[in-house]
Design a binder for these strands. Structure first.
Lengths: 327, 327
DNA sequence: GTGAAAGCGCTAACAC
DNA sequence: GTGTTAGCGCTTTCAC
């Protein structure tokens, strides 16, 4: 409509106006000025839907985050945003709130061509979302391991080695002479939590330290449950010389218990996963899971597919790094 | 194309297929089944661009956030998301990174009809972005005061009273008997910072406590500058019995200094703005700026405009609430 | 150099 | 009940 309108206003043909506005193809200087003036007058803006419909290209990427309020994802989002910037793409951030429902909705949006590709962060890759993803046959990257991936799948994954990560943290504690190491973990049914618990057990066994179930808490990866589980543990009066929290939300819960009860940060050694601002500003040792690099790799993999440079599925593994601080 | 494809596959007319797929209008059970099967077979998904182009409606709202990694915005984003959910809308989150450039890009996206409306959080409402916004003549809500608003403007604003908020915090300190109250503020050129400083001064003057410039630091609303300004202040050895940080990022900076130097949380009274998880989990008194309610009001105002129920500009003022904790 | 027109996929009005 | 078709705004091919 708008080009047509300008065409009618100026008496210049539709095609010439279109050329002038897009900058593709020739249009004389005089006409271009007339057209520019008219465009300004009606506040012309090309309609994105029309353009997308025509080009079948959105120059946008959907980004599904399980919890947009979890600081863990910040550097990932930053990395993704910056990397997309370089190729003139935008991230469309969706908060999936750990709900399969929302993830499916997101995949549906991809099917509807709301974006050219999808980066999906999830801890819950199941038949439901993987199948939906396969059906879209559009480019996607998952930021977690999925066992059943096939070479001809339309998605890749980027993954941090959580087992090795927890081994680093636990080794650090053992080397510092700790024997009674409390692990505040997530739900063992979740793959990422199981992996972290595995890393913890591996190291204890290597050093012939007994693995005691009461030293492995289920904090559900969330602040409140971690707080409550930690409180219950402290009630028992068992010896502790080190606490490891398997993510920073749970570290927050532990921290809240400690401030409530006037327990100092140096009452025992403490280390967390995620390396967000929270641990940094409290000078607490934390495991950096390379979120930034996860994001950047995800974009690179995705763009390879969007630009048709690759069709075979690929997996990228990253190694976490322990950031040692005061604790 | 896709409807056409199904129409050709099944030999059923285009319109009937369209009716079956959309659910609008009649289509016999038998045909519907045939169509459903064909749709399934080709993984039919309606094309969003085509639909948007046709309907001139996206059912999406652009949401511009200055810093998506600042916990202050979490509850605002949540409030907005939930409220939009109720009316079947989605937020499209854009990280403007405090850059005018990005804000203008965002407003441009609105002009291109990438969404039906815009909620813009900014601390920098100037001629540039306000004019651009006016030119779109599309619905928008700003979450800050803008002095030059006109009754026929195409946008509204929602606003927390920062002066009254800081008065609450400062009064709390004064009532607790504090005399040497350090304020870690932002840059006074910024309107929100100036307002907060004003509230602080108001209360001190009411109580005949001298206002001393060296007790008002510029922490630029960011963690590092606040840390450094606080460190410099502490060097001087001036007496302090209370510290107020004008946002939680700056509180983090102060906190980092304290953990670095082994200063306990009860060395002096401390209170912050924002009431995020950081202060909550450290049991620190903080001012709740009603971010949730800001978000919800913003959506309500915006939907009134999107649905054409109102054209005159409106302003909503909210009153902050002090959450008293251990400090 | 400029202009006419097809077509992206969808919706909906209208004709039968 | 079912079918035909115009048109949303843009891009691009092709004809002049």
């Amino acid at each position: 409509m708008s080009i047509k309108l300008i065409s009618e206003m100026t008496g210049i043909s539709y095609a010439t106006v279109a050329r002038a506005l897009s900058g593709n193809g020739y249009c004389s200087k005089e006409k271009r000025d007339i057209i520019a003036k008219a465009a300004e007058e009606i506040h012309y803006h090309p309609n994105l839907s029309a353009r997308t419909l025509r080009n079948n290209r959105t120059e946008k990427v959907l980004l599904g985050i399980p919890d947009i309020c979890n600081a863990f994802y910040f550097r990932m989002i930053e990395g993704i945003t910056e990397e997309l910037d370089k190729v003139g793409y935008y991230p469309i951030i969706f908060n999936t709130r750990h709900l399969l429902d929302k993830e499916l909705k997101l995949i549906d949006l991809l099917s509807q061509r709301y974006a050219d590709g999808l980066i999906l962060v999830s801890f819950n890759f199941t038949e439901a979302n993987i199948d939906a993803l396969r059906r879209t046959n559009l480019p996607a990257v998952l930021t977690n391991r999925y066992e059943g991936i096939r070479e001809d799948d339309n998605f890749d994954f980027v993954y941090s080695d959580h087992v090795a990560g927890m081994e680093q943290v636990t080794s650090f504690m053992v080397e510092k002479g700790c024997k009674n190491i409390l692990l505040v973990a997530g739900n063992e049914n979740e793959q990422t939590s199981a992996e972290r618990v595995q890393g913890y057990k591996n190291v204890l066994q290597q050093h012939n330290i007994p693995v005691r179930d009461e030293y492995i808490l289920n904090g559900e990866f969330r602040t409140e449950p971690a707080h409550d589980a930690f409180a219950a543990f402290m009630q028992k009066g068992l010896p502790v010389d080190a606490v490891i929290t398997a993510n920073e939300l749970m570290f927050m819960g532990v921290m809240r218990y400690m401030t409530e009860h006037g327990i100092d940060l140096d009452a025992f050694r403490i280390a967390s996963f995620d390396n967000t601002d929270f641990s940094r500003n409290l000078n607490v040792t934390s495991l950096d899971l390379k979120q930034d690099e996860i994001g950047r790799s995800a974009v690179r993999l995705l763009m390879e597919r969007i630009e048709g440079r690759r069709v075979k599925s690929e997996q990228v593994y990253l190694m976490p790094e322990l950031i040692v601080r005061k604790t």
